[in-house]
Nucleic acid binder design. Structure first.
Lengths: 218, 218
DNA sequence: GTCTATAACCGGATAGAC
DNA sequence: GTCTATCCGGTTATAGAC
């Protein structure tokens, strides 16, 4: 009897602790995304992140031992989103629909989660010191799969003959630009972020130029 | 006589000093471009820059009182190059030639001076704290001029109806991507930078897709 | 699990001799 | 104009009381 009770207590306590840990980790990770995006890896300080999360700095180090560990966790989350954005691409058979869906998904991602895009961009700018291996293995394999599909479309005469990798680079470049260079776009738009209508127009124009440019609309 | 001699001496000495100053400033600025591009503004240290320039840290501070002043000088140089890249654009009458020339010039700039492109990109990523005003005034006026020309082409039916600003954003995004995301491209190209031939292919494909995409080839 | 205090270190900038 | 030594402020990370 006594044994059972104490077991229950231990389990209850352990569950609650896990909930506390999870909830605190989420708070910290959300704060870290903001601060890393705003100041870069070097410019971000654990003090700023802790302040943003509303906890003492020491608590942050209790949950994430080092700044680099925290940063890696943030990058991992972003990488998963990146790969998942291709779902639309894979589900569609037609080149027009697959590419349109992918471009629109990436544009939406830039609109709704620009911070993550900027953290990714900075990591690449710095030479991808922490994610180089992931790029070479996981992203490379991911890209190969999509390259094959595009090659099939070319062989079937559905789109112009072109280098599929360079097409993907173009799509990444254009869509992520709206997140990564947001401050420049704002400065060139009367100090206003693009309105929903302006962004919709951008999305449509980007999609149309690329699809027409590769002969998918011929 | 004595007076003349001393005047000459002073002038000679002054000229030599100016040459020393100019030559040292150039060394430091070149080193600063490398280090700022490789580590970002926060990650770059005056010690690293001084080492790269082959001088003691104190000398660097003799020529540029603060790290921020040095960084501003670097940014100024980059901004001038950016604006100058539009010369081809302005010299050509035909939309095809003007845009082709501009895209190719920007691609060449990404190829030959990727470090500068990355410094610019990081500054924008961080919200353009130091160059916001230049963007709002100088770059904005620069862009307006090009927007007018594109609008004329649209009205003359030479290219499709589109938002000229978004077209320019697309061109910037795609061309600068080859400098800013070089490490990602390398990881997806068997850990090799694009060869001259690969880059040439990229340049041609980028130009073709955009020109065809906006109906300039119809 | 939380928090205050602090150790250990590093970076920007300068003093002052040469 | 050059260089060594140093100050000062800020950063990561941890010790140890609660």
């Amino acid at each position: 009897m006594k044994n059972d009770e104490s077991l229950v207590k231990v389990r209850t306590k352990s569950v609650r602790k896990n909930q506390i840990r999870l909830s605190n980790e989420r708070r910290i990770l959300a704060a870290a995304v903001k601060i890393f995006a705003g100041f870069g890896y070097q410019g971000a300080t654990t003090r700023k992140i802790a302040e943003e999360a509303g906890i003492p700095k020491a608590n942050l180090h209790y949950y994430f031992q080092t700044k680099e560990q925290l940063y890696r966790r943030v990058l991992d989350g972003i990488f998963k989103d990146w790969l998942a954005a291709a779902n639309t691409f894979d589900e569609c058979v037609e080149p027009i629909e697959a590419l349109r869906g992918y471009i629109e998904t990436k544009m939406e991602l830039s609109r709704k989660r620009p911070l993550e895009s900027r953290i990714w961009a900075e990591e690449i700018l710095r030479g991808a010191p922490l994610i180089q291996h992931e790029l070479e293995v996981t992203l490379s394999a991911w890209l190969d799969t999509r390259v094959k599909r595009i090659t099939d479309w070319i062989n079937a005469g559905r789109i112009d003959a072109l280098n599929p990798r360079i097409l993907m680079f173009m799509i990444w470049a254009v869509t992520q630009h709206f997140a990564d260079f947001e401050s420049q776009i704002r400065a060139l738009n009367q100090q206003q972020n693009l309105s929903d209508n302006q962004f919709k127009e951008a999305k449509q124009q980007v999609t149309r130029i690329i699809l027409k440019g590769i002969g998918a609309l011929d």
